[in-house]
Each structure stands twice: as structure tokens, then as C-alpha cells.
Amino acid sequence: MARWGMVVDLDMCTGCGACIAACKEENNVAYVSPEEAEKGRAISWMQMVNFVEGEFPNVHIKYMPRPCMHCDNPPCIKVCPVHATFKDEEGIVGQIYERCIGCRYCMSACPYTVKYFNWFEPEWTESTIASMNPDVSLRKKGVVEKCTFCHHRLQKARDKARAKGMEVVDGDYTTACADTCPTQAISFGDLDDPNSNTARLSKSKRAFRMLEDLGTEPKVFYLSEGEKNV
């Protein structure tokens, strides 16, 4: 069985935000009002986190696209009182919206702050309602939502594979963010498959994970930027 994971090469990432946009379109992520966005309530399963270091003229900014880490040891599922958030056999951390009671314990338990709460009933405008992806259910007020590693795509890939009597393997499916990345900085695949490019990259010397010392065992790996000198 596959163990799905992602590798982001920060040396190639240009912080363009294509992953953010692709994710929002793919997963029917709602837009909050500008006023709510101002309060930090905008929902975006993929975020571009940046770190500004140094002072003029020796300034350096690091950009890191940050989806859910899909931890192998996820702190969020331990605190959920209703088992709304869980980890499946292939390592994907999911959220069952129908079960979620909106207590937001998982949000505070998540060290990566990648869970988002629907504070209000989503307001769909004519611009957004018409282009809904019929594969992805919508979320209502009072539930927590998060990156699913485009699980609906996995389901489709699995249907296809099963029709041929096969299992889903590396390369059968990819996430919307990895699909669209202009520099191909994001790669997605089976971390347990020795032939997988993603698995190979995750073992690179440049590979690291966010807040690794917490023991959450994230399945999103980052490759550090190349040496910086001229």
C-alpha cells in the first residue's frame, strides 16, 4: 500500500502562488469577505509562508509553500473528541465534515496551523458557484477543513486501477498543486516506493521537514536552497 507524501524543492520554488490558486479552484475552497480576510480568517489549504531575515542590504527572504503535513504521528487526531479527523491506511490525514462539531481543538493542536475554520456560512458569488468542482463536497459553517492531498483524485485513480484489477501506485495520481507548479518544485508520490522520484528526493541530503523535533513525522519534505554566494 502506498504511503503518499510530497517534496517541495525550495531552490526551485519562486513563491508565485500557483499552488495556492490551483488548490482553491480544485477543492471548492470558499472566499471570505475582505473584512474577515483582514482578521486572518481567509481559507487557503496551501499557504505561502515567508521568513524575512537580515537588514538592508543583506536581506534574505525564504518562501515556503505550506500544505497540511499529513503527519505520520498527527497531533490533531489525538485531540478530536468525535473522531472527525483521522489518518487513513495510506497516511492521508482526513477530516469528516459531517462529524466535526467545530470545537477547534485540532486547530490548536496542529503545530503547523494548517487547519481552517468556517466562521460563517460560505458566501458563493456567481463568479465562484458556477465553477464548482463536482468531485469535492462543500463545507458549511462551524466545521474545520484542511488539505486532503486531493483525496478525490486518489479515489478516481483507485477506481481506474481497480477496474484493471490493480492497486494505485506512484504516478497514478498527483495533487493539484504539484500538477500546476511552473518550476516543478513540488513533487508528489509514494514515499515507500523505491522507484518513486518523490521518495528518492525525500532522502536527498538537502531534505528537511518542518518542526522535525516535535516527532510529528510529517510526510511533506522540503529541499533547502543551494549555496548562496557570488
Binding site: A84, F86, G94, I96, R99, H152, Q155
Partner: peptide, 10 residues
């Protein structure tokens, strides 16, 4: 329910 939660009925 898992599938529903994870994004639609497939």
C-alpha cells in the same frame, strides 16, 4: 463518511 469527508463520493 470518510470519503464524504475527504472530498465527495468519488
Amino acid at each position: 463518511l470518510k470519503y464524504v469527508g475527504l472530498g465527495g463520493a468519488g
